[in-house]
Design a protein around this nucleic acid. Structure first.
Length: 590
RNA sequence: GGUUCCAUAGCUCAGCUGGAUAGAGCAUCAGAUUUCUAAUCUGACGGUCACAGGUUCGAAUCCUGUUGGGAUCACCA
């Protein structure tokens, strides 16, 4: 149990003993003590005033005395300031923690909540390559998966490929019209970029046709629907759903190109999945669910044959679940996918990492699943995140105004290389190790940059300003890890009893390090890798400061040396494990 | 218009279920290296927490309203 929870329990027991009142653990407020006061943890007593019917200062005084008297192994002393009860932990408690965690095992192993969770993320469209915004999705999903695993869950990472629909047909049409049978191989282009090029091309053609119609006096809205190339795309979707051989084989060919491109990007990012779902498989399941829902009167059919659900009566809000021509829409396949997922994994929680522009869509999906009486509906959670925007506005693949993910990665690796070379830190590495190091640092900077911001906030990325390597960044944390590794290598296998009086710096480090597992718990509950970023940075910063004033290898006594080596070891492990929850590697040297 | 999210230092962001004098990084300025990795450390400068009310011992945090910005409300995905 974490120190903080332990103190809450002790506090509650003390209230019981002193005033014969039962308090909920949530009503015992325990904070970190502000640095200007003595102590590590502070118990807030204002809200206990009613229970104890005394002034806060008196409560704090009595509680402090009682707590320190009855738990002398945990607390050494207390002080009361303005009604705040500051408690100091005993050296022995901190030393015990230090001894236990400096053993050669993982630092975090005491979260063992059981349960199964599926995290769906990435979920790309097969008509365009990944851009910078998608990276946020991928990193978030990957990190949340890792956090839940550390939290004690059985995790299944899922990728739902949007491999069907009108947008795919658009790339196919443009390719048929313009490509003269050229392929990624013949043009030496990465498959996803190759196909993305034709998606952009379709929109160029589409726009030109629309303009022509508008010039003839057709309204813009009608022009959108009447443009011949748009009608062709619609026709192609019908053919595809009907199983037309030629269409399906073209579709397979072009999707194949895209998958190759995606795989290479995932590989570079160090991201993998346990299950892949394809909408081309699940949309039929969705139709089946819609049929069943019709029987159960959850849905209703309009005269033209389209199928709807009523979300709200007043004001009327209806949602289409099946088109009048019998083809499925986005939500149809989502209903099917949700069912398939649950049949396969029987998970309690199902997280969807999807941009916040789909909040309404996900609400509707959950609503429909509930109406259909699906037991897994309750576990559905939409982890939404804000758009990544450029200083000039949004990225739009249709218009080609995007920061491409592959280009971004290349840039980061180049910057990592440049910085390393400028600092003259390339000696002693083989060329292969250097390539690996640049990848570690470059990707570390990129992932940290995108994960450190609260997911629900939109973020602005200025491509003109490169991502920093100083301060609150991935490389800063990685550097601290490398620094500690270096010191620990020099420490060899030094061992000695570490029982010694702790100074304030040592107490501070150990107290901070102890919070790791509760940070993981909180990050899991809030689905927020940003909390891990903050914590891991905080630890790294404290450690660098610690190293500035506390000598490790030349400590004044063997016991001190042993203690500080232990602190260095725990910090190193905490950083490495924390970074790994973000999908970031911690280098031994950099 | 309905729904919903956001607004904190010049910039990018923390601030947990309300707690002590609102914190980091970047930028600017001034320092620290014969010493375990200076991709580091120490300090200075920088704030009407969008605005106005309310709740209470106590509000950046909760409630209401206002302003500004984003998203969404399709037989698109």
């Amino acid at each position: 149990m974490s120190f903080s929870n332990k103190i809450k329990e002790i506090g509650a027991q003390a209230v019981q003993a002193l005033w014969q009142q039962t308090v909920d653990l949530n009503d015992i407020h325990v904070n970190e003590t502000k640095p200007e006061f003595d102590g590590e943890y502070t118990l807030v007593t204002f809200n206990l005033a009613k229970i104890a019917r005394k002034k806060p200062a008196e409560i704090a005084e009595e509680l402090g005395k009682h707590i320190v008297d009855t738990h002398s192994k945990v607390f050494t002393s207390y002080n009361v300031i303005n009604g705040f009860l500051n408690l100091s932990l005993t050296d022995s408690l901190l030393l015990e923690f230090g001894k236990e965690k400096s053993l050669d095992t993982a630092v975090c192993n005491d979260n063992n909540t059981s349960g199964k969770i599926m995290v769906e993320f990435s979920s790309p469209n097969t008509n365009k390559p990944l851009h910078f915004g998608h990276l946020r999705n991928n990193f978030l999903g990957d990190s949340v998966s890792k956090i839940y695993k550390a939290y004690g869950y059985d995790v299944c990472k899922a990728n739902l490929i949007n491999d069907r629909g009108i947008h795919i047909c658009k790339s196919m049409i443009a390719w048929q019209k313009e490509a003269n049978n050229e392929t990624p191989q013949s043009t030496n282009t990465k498959g996803d970029h190759f196909v993305g090029k034709y998606y952009v091309k379709f929109n160029d053609l589409y726009k030109a046709e629309m303009k022509e119609l508008v010039d003839k006096g057709v309204s813009e809205k009608d022009a959108e629907r009447q443009a011949p190339i748009f009608l062709e795309a619609q026709e192609m979707l019908r053919k595809w759903e009907a199983g037309d051989e030629e269409t399906v084989s073209l579709w397979k060919k072009m999707n194949g190109w895209v998958y190759e491109g995606f795989e290479s990007t995932y590989d570079r990012l160090g991201i993998s999945f346990d299950r892949y779902y394809y909408e081309s498989d699940t949309y039929l399941l969705g139709k089946k669910e819609v049929d069943e829902g019709l029987e159960k009167k959850v849905f209703f059919k309009k005269e033209d044959g389209s199928v709807w659900i009523t979300i709200k009566e007043d004001p009327l809000d209806e949602k289409l679940v099946l088109r009048s021509d019998g083809t499925s829409v986005y939500i149809t396949q989502d209903i099917g996918t949700a069912q398939l997922k649950f049949e396969q994994e029987q998970m309690q929680k199902s997280v969807y990492v999807i941009g916040d522009e789909q909040i309404y869509h996900m609400k509707v999906l959950k609503f429909i699943l509930e109406k259909l009486g699906k037991e897994h509906a309750a576990g559905v959670h939409h982890l939404s995140y804000g758009m990544v925007e450029l200083p000039h506005g949004k990225m739009k693949s249709r218009e080609g105004t995007v920061v491409d993910a592959d280009d971004m990665i290349d840039d980061m690796l180049a910057i990592a290389q440049k910085n390393t070379e400028e600092l003259g830190k390339v000696d002693g590495f083989t060329p292969e190790e250097l390539t690996q190091l640049y990848r570690t640092i470059g990707l570390g900077a990129l992932k940290f940059y995108l994960l450190r911001v609260d997911p629900k906030k939109k973020m602005i990325f200025n491509p003109e300003e490169s991502i920093d390597f100083h301060g609150f960044t991935g490389p800063f944390v990685q550097y601290t890890h490398a620094r500690l590794s270096s010191i620990l290598r020099k420490a060899d296998d030094f061992s000695a009893e570490m029982d010694t009086a702790l100074n304030i710096e040592e107490r501070k480090m150990l107290t901070e390090l102890e919070k790791f597992s509760s940070i993981i718990e909180q990050a899991a509950i809030e689905y927020s890798p940003a909390l891990i970023c903050n914590y891991v940075y905080h630890i790294a910063k404290s450690m660098n400061s610690f190293l500035n004033s506390q000598h490790i290898l030349t400590a004044e006594a063997d016991s001190k040396k042993a203690l500080r080596i232990a602190i260095a070891k725990i910090t190193k492990k905490t950083i490495a494990e924390g970074l790994s929850l973000l999908g970031i590697h911690a280098p031994e040297r950099m």
